[in-house]
Simulated assay, not measured.
Amino acid sequence: MSESTLYIGLMSGTSLDGIDCALVDFSSGNPRLLGTALRPFEAGLHAELLALQTPGDNELQRVALAANALAEAYAASVAAVLAEAGVAPDQVAAIGMHGQTLRHRPELGFTVQIGNAALLAERSGIRVVADFRSRDVAAGGQGAPLVPAFHRGVFGGKRHRAVVNIGGIANITDLPAKGAVRGWDCGPGNVLLDGWNARHHGQPYDADGAWAAAGNSVNELLERLLADEYFDLAPPKSTGRDLFHLGWLDQHLAGLPGLAPVDVQATLLEFTARSIANEIEQEAGEAEAIYICGGGARNGAMMRWLAALLAPRLVSSTEALGLHPDWVEAVAFAWLAKQCLAGQPGNLPAVTGAAGARVLGAIYSA
């Protein structure tokens, strides 16, 4: 098993839109996708994971039960991908399981991603590598973002590039042709857009940004959102739902009564695009091309805003570099599992602020 080049990556991110599962072959160096699956969360599990983002009653038991349910859903995703590819469990070296983030407070010395890795190992019959972020935090780092090390290996080149992952939270990897790679969370990605859309339409996301595109951005609200202190911080930095959530938005809306919901959605779209573009201009201004991955790459209105704000730079999805934007993060955690088994570092101290390079992850044997 140790000689296998096949790994599975599992990612369920801040957007809570479901489980991304990717079976990856690393035999040629660069990742090759053999199978993928997107599994939406069952409604009850989605509701509980969302509720657990904030303090509540009986949390210890609820977290444990949610972790078990998540492991069962992960195992079903793994089985589906293996069946699609015709690959047996004993042909896979390991599963890289990110887990579901419930708290991310590196300034207090902790980050929490749940998902019962032991149960997943039992159900799948495959070794599991989990808890990737804690070691970086223990070394004084942010524990995030972790994908820039993967981006360097897969997307780095002779031109200065930036890669932007727009999930629930957006993060940027600065990939100069020469010199140190940098990366950081630049602010909200889809989390506010999805939450506002769900509040008013009962749907998990605004498909293609169509609702946002039908409204008009409100400049006063936009200025209030962009004035948050997070945007004044220099990298390394990371964030999550602990800061950017609908309650945060409601505080800014309190002094602006009567705004049409569609105009708030339009403002949130511009806010997300501008917060990304502003950080690229400030921290990666020499990048010649910007490549987008994550759910935001499927939002046509978002992509148009970014293209306009970042012109004359090329703005495209990572598919132009050979990896579909939907699967970049899942593949990254397959890669991080491979790094762990090889005893190789998975973090970049210049990105996270950790005291040094560290091997990331805890191993659960099959």
Rank of each mutant, 00 (worst) to 15 (best):
R199G: 06
L226V: 13
R241C: 11
N197E: 15
L225F: 01
A227E: 10
E220R: 14
P235I: 08
D232P: 12
L226F: 06
L243T: 13
T239G: 11
S217F: 07
P204K: 02
D232I: 13
K237L: 09
G187M: 01
G189S: 12
D228H: 01
L233Q: 09
S238L: 14
N219Q: 15
L233F: 02
A210N: 11
G187V: 02
Y230D: 02
P235S: 09
A234E: 14
S217H: 15
A212Q: 13
R241F: 06
G195Y: 02
K237S: 07
F244D: 05
A210C: 01
P236E: 01
P204G: 03
A198R: 06
F231R: 01
F244C: 13
G209H: 00
R199N: 08
L243M: 14
K237G: 04
L222N: 07
P236R: 02
S217C: 08
D208P: 12
W196T: 11
F244N: 10
G215P: 11
G215V: 05
L222R: 04
P236F: 03
P188W: 06
R199E: 09
D242V: 04
G240K: 08
L243Y: 09
A212G: 10
W211E: 04
F244T: 03
D206Y: 03
G189T: 02
L243R: 04
T239L: 04
S217A: 15
G195F: 03
P235Y: 07
L222E: 04
H200D: 09
A227D: 15
K237H: 07
L233E: 05
D242R: 12
W211I: 02
D208R: 06
D206R: 00
L221C: 01
P235F: 07
G202L: 02
A213D: 11
R199V: 03
D232K: 15
Y205H: 03
W196L: 09
Q203I: 11
P236Y: 03
H201D: 13
Q203Y: 03
G189K: 03
D208K: 13
P236W: 11
Q203D: 05
A213C: 15
D208L: 09
A227S: 10
G195W: 00
K237V: 07
G189W: 12
L193E: 08
L226W: 05
N197L: 12
N219P: 09
L233W: 12
S217L: 14
P204L: 11
E220M: 12
Q203V: 12
A210Y: 00
A212F: 02
L233T: 13
P236T: 05
L222C: 08
L222S: 03
A212H: 15
